[in-house]
Design a binder for these strands. Sequence first.
DNA 1: ATGGTGCATGTTTAC
DNA 2: TAAACATGCACCATG
Length: 873
Amino acid sequence: MLREITRHLITLVIFVTFQQLLWLTLSAYEDSLFCDTFHSEEPGWRECNICTKRLHCGCIASKFLLELLDYGGVGCSSCARSSRLHSRLIKLHVHGFEDFGCLDDSSESISGLLPVPHIQCDEIPNGFGSLTRNNAGDMESIPVESTVAANDNDEGGLAQLCRLIEASEPSLLHPSERANTNGCLGQFRQEEIRHAIGDIGTGFSNMTLPSIVSSKFTKADNMSSLLDMGDMHSSLSEPSLSMALGAPSGTTNFAPFPGGAVEGREQGKTPSSFQQGQRSRPILPKPSKLGLLASSENNKGSASELRIARPPAEGRGKNQLLPRYWPRITDQELQQLSGDLNSNIVPLFEKILSASDAGRIGRLVLPKACAEAYFPPISQSEGIPLKIQDIKGREWTFQFRFWPNNNSRMYVLEGVTPCIQSMQLKAGDTITFSRIDPGGKLVMGFRKSTNNNEDAQDAQASGLLDGTASGETSLSADGYIGWNNSENHGGGINGDLLQQITTPTEKKRTRNIGPKSKRLLMHSEDAMELRLTWEEAQDLLRPPPSVKPTVVTIEDHEFEEYDEPPVFGKRTIFTSRSPGRQEQWAQCDDCSKWRKLPVDALLPPKWTCSENAWDSSRCVCSVSEEMTPKDLDNLLRVSKDFKKRRILESQKRFQDCEPSGLDALASAAVLGDNIDDSGEPSVGATTKHPRHRPGCTCIVCIQPPSGKGKHKPTCTCNVCMTVKRRFKTLMLRKKKRQSEREAETSQKDNMDHKEPEVNGTMSHEALHINNPETAVSQSKMQTEKPETSAGQIDLNCHPNREDMPLDMPGLTTMNLVDMGNTHLDSYIKENGLSSLVWDQQGDQTQHSGESLRRLSDEAFLASIGWTHESRRD
DNA sequence: ATGGTGCATGTTTAC
DNA sequence: TAAACATGCACCATG
């Protein structure tokens, strides 16, 4: 690590030193600067085609081992290996930069070549390239724009260089190195790095082809290979090249901007660009992340399609359009589209769908500038219906409107859900808007992001879905305006060529990553998964080992407080095969055998038989299980029942403390909330579980101590009101279900008596009792289908219970239990199960006893209107 | 209970 | 720092 840092620092110093020397030397030449387009007038001198400034290449070469080439470019004066390249590339071959791979003649990389595209005369002093390494490990150069280099004086060369390296090759520096670098320089702000990225990216975006070429054609001095590859990619690259270079596009119908890309604020910043653009000067749009995208996409491989952000077409206020909304359509796509539609397609803008855009609300937020530029003007908030044709020719009518927002407007397209769904778009995909000329008909298309959701989320969370989001991989050529692969109309585009790979480093910048953004996109499935995982985790929480809790007594109630966070423990199950005797069982991680443990045993996350300190006879995996498989099945089932019974026991404890009916309900609610019905193994036998910590806002913790007389029937505290409200709701719901069920039952009776009531709830209960296996599965079903469960339980309720007043003073847990048992007895007798008698002492066989207890538990829960569903509430 | 609507608000980004 | 924008949320309508 240290060596790496040192190596980089040395490299930086050398690099900067060289840069400073170059600067000084070039400055000495004053007007003798060179351009990327120059011609030879006399030996040793080159003159810029544009500004006619002259550069005596020989002097430079002699000092810096550079030389200008007759056919354009700069080569190493010693090896001349990099002497030939595209005329718009200036290549610097710098000795002494072995670290970047130069001077390695055998290297397959572009080592040591510093193509500096579009260098203009006034850029040369700062126009030094830094190196980056593309995905394939090839070396590429990244031009340093004047804006960055201008800071050189402020930050110092080293800082700039570090920044450039950082920006151009985030992976080059290890994070720690990065930190060190930042630290030592003390002035590297992420912001600046970001700008550097943008700057560099812009350069790339404008040198798309050259950069690719230079990176791909490792024998860069081999013009033939360049040409060969150029032929191979000519269809792809040339149009983009022409676009990128700002040359008048003769190969595309897309030429809607008289001023090219240099417009708006760009004009002010690069005034010469416009002029030069008239002379086939490269377009130098404002540095933007877009450029980074282009560059990143350009890095993706030799066969990458070049998706260049196009400056917007003419429109109102088009000058204010952010580059992120610039349409990125390849000329190839454009040509194909125009051909397919037999018209001239004018890309207007595009937008990456946000979660809310793609959501069910059906509102697509339009970029304000885009909406005002390309959509009809609207003065009323209600807006106007806007017809937009999709790529299948279907015409959609959206409501184009706006909302007042902070003295501004927020434009939306309403009613886009059907369209979005028909295109099967999701957050992260890009929707595009184009115009068909003549006629001005609006057309919408899309580009699918083949990345998964999390990528989109990443990008979204990190604010990268603004054009730099690289979720748009595998961009279909047809897809720009909606021709997805399945609907490919042909066009001879090799899909493979369009595969684009995104590097993580391009996706994620140091900014906006992490919890800073609260807008993490979480899809429902993910949220559900997370929730379940969280719940599972909750069940596995254990008090921190070897940490004694601080017992705080508040109004006669003891609360355990832990200074340490809880720890995860191994899942165990609790059961009570005989009355009053609780057991804990754990499964060995090695042999999967179940071992019995003391109830109070807490296991680490990983536990094996060898750690079974409580049973020396079963402390090795080779020893058989204590239980038969059948017992094991029962055990698992009983475990679930045990959990439910704990509810009863806890409620009994509350009842012993003279609880009111509300207390019982509240207690049930609390327990129900905390003890899920999932049948999952429970934590140790303590109700003061460690999850309740200071600051916890769960219902247990916010509830005032419910000691004696704390909650009277007339109490209107939040807890009581909540419980009352919930109870009332449950009763109403229950009553409704009851009536529905009665109607259903009577209807069934009238219809058919032949078919046994297999699907009826009673049969289910009977099966529970007669068939333990079924009982287990059914029990599981109950867990998974709370509604069904509730339905079953309802049959056990006392008919009069429906009218039971909420505040009935006599409503105690014991009453409820009694009622439940009464109902159960009735139910059993009614169903011919009189042989199975509820035995409080547990003298029954294990199966029936547990089943009955379970039924009793369920009956109790039902009797208080407490269903799985309500517990989840 | 669910979904639509309009607006408010917090976050991000560009200047 | 202000504008833009993504999303939250209250309110209302509907089933």
